[in-house]
């Protein structure tokens, strides 16, 4: 900021003041800059145009095209995409029980992962936010955050090694479930756990200690304090964490490839149809399933009002 160049009468008041600017301006204000200063909409559209063009031209158009493609089909002889409208893909999804089974399996795995993660995260987050000393708290946050930065594939790989034949799980005497759906649930719960702990911890940190102390002083037993003070303040954090783990599991198909044995999730079907099976329209239609599941879930949660506070 060059104070030497400031001119006292360059004062212009509020930023969307569109009165003509005083003629003598400091040397720093070039014509382009002066124009921008005067026209708020021009500044805003210059700021917005590039990022908005990127997001709309690339992402929104791609999503819209996905919806349209799902209504096309593939010519079985030439394997070219046939651009006539048809609901065949969706009929296949409903009538063929493979798709039904895979959808149920995927949603089931996502639900199991979410329930396990919330169940583990609640006591940990509570200990971190309300029991541990401030010093220990900071160290615990770092300890929980660090694996978040470790590579996703490394984490899946590490469970593949732990659960392998002759691996740590077998050696420890606990026994390994082997590669299968249980291994998928364990691995996914492991990977997304920090994403669930953090929002719950953040929500708990916002619960004022004084409130808990007051309840305690007035004679409320711990269970009652948890039920009527902690939980209501905690729900948004739990919902946020649950949405994370559910959505992330729903869209994952790498873990099931690595530790899931022969099992398939929705993502596998999408990937196979987009690649090897060369049926983009069917792949697009299958991809609509997780979108619909997420939309139904978010609408249901919104009804309860829990989304407002995230």
């Amino acid at each position: 900021m060059s104070t030497t160049s400031s001119v006292p009468d360059a004062h212009e008041g509020a930023r969307n003041d569109q009165a003509p600017a005083p003629a003598p301006r400091g040397p720093v204000a070039r014509p382009g800059s002066r124009l921008l200063h005067r026209w708020v909409w021009l500044r805003l559209s210059l700021l917005l145009s590039a990022p908005l063009a990127w997001m709309v031209l690339i992402y929104v158009v791609a999503l819209a095209a996905l919806l349209i493609t799902s209504l096309w089909s593939v010519d079985s002889l030439s394997s070219e995409i046939d651009r006539t409208w048809t609901l065949d893909n969706f009929r296949t999804l409903i009538e063929n029980e493979v798709y039904r089974n895979v959808t149920v399996r995927t949603v089931g795995v996502a639900l199991a992962v979410t329930v396990i993660d919330v169940a583990i995260a609640l006591p940990i987050a509570f200990y971190m936010a309300k029991v541990a000393s401030p010093r220990a708290r900071r160290m615990l946050v770092v300890a929980v955050l660090t694996p978040l930065w470790a590579s996703y594939l490394v984490k899946v790989f590490s469970w593949r090694v732990v659960l392998s034949e002759g691996g740590l799980a077998e050696w420890s005497g606990l026994g390994s479930p082997g590669y299968g759906l249980t291994a998928v649930v364990i691995t996914q719960a492991y990977i997304w756990l920090p994403y669930v702990i953090l929002p719950i911890f953040a929500a708990l940190e916002r619960v004022p200690d004084s409130l808990l102390e007051a309840a305690g002083d007035l004679g409320a037993p711990t269970s009652m304090v948890v039920r009527s003070i902690v939980m209501p303040l905690l729900v948004p954090g739990i919902v946020a964490g649950a949405i994370f783990s559910f959505s992330l599991t729903l869209g994952d198909y790498i873990t099931v490839n690595i530790v899931g044995g022969a099992n398939q999730m929705l993502g596998n079907l999408v990937f196979v149809n987009a690649g090897a099976a060369n049926n983009l329209p069917l792949a697009a239609a299958i991809a609509m399933i997780p979108i619909v599941v997420m939309l139904v879930l978010l609408t249901a949660i919104r009804r309860t009002g829990a989304l407002e506070n995230i």
């Binding site: 992402y59 158009v61 095209a65 996905l66 493609t69 198909y253 993502g267 990937f271 792949a283």
Partner: peptide, 13 residues
Amino acid sequence: LPGVVTGIALNNG
């Protein structure tokens, strides 16, 4: 959105 959705949307695009 789930990863496969973003993936297949861009792939298809």
